[in-house]
Amino acid sequence: MAKVLTFIKDFLLPTLLSLGMMLLKIIVIITLILVTIEVLKALKVLQWINKKIYVITKYLGISPSASFPLLVGLIIGITYGAGVILMSYKQQEMNKKDVLLVSVFLCLCHAIVEDTLLFAAFGSITWVVIVVKLVVAFTTTMLVNLILKLIEHRQLAKNPD
């Protein structure tokens, strides 16, 4: 009985509390982001932002509408980024290749503001972390895009129809 009580006191309560806090945070952020996105869409701001970002992100091989999920994931985080990707994919604003390329980029580089600042508090060199992560994410995504293109060409050469 005492064992069960300590389990509840030391594990169950703090775990459920932190879980609740995390979920609350996620719910607030997701709602804010998804509502903001819909409002931005209604105001046609999204297209404008996409065009601006696309100057850089076109080198990754993604379509213009995929650059916003990329931006959301890069700045806010992969959970929220994936939510936006899922929504864009269902609304057919992103194709499979976009999803893969954006995912590769976001795997390597996401939540750059929050995560980088957390480590800076312990003495990491912030500009090194950000530059290394952005360069690695960009080059890796471009490389994956190149590989996908090569596979596509090979398949076209095999079945020319």
């Binding site: 996620i26 719910i27 997701i30 509502v35 819909e38 409002v39 209604a42 105001l43 959970t79």
Partner: peptide
Amino acid sequence: ISLSEALKNGLKQSLKVIIKIIKIMVPVY
């Protein structure tokens, strides 16, 4: 699309994503 409609759409989308994430996160956490 009016702003109130956009707001409604956004809330609907959020609810879907939130339910999906809760289903995954609670057991895993």
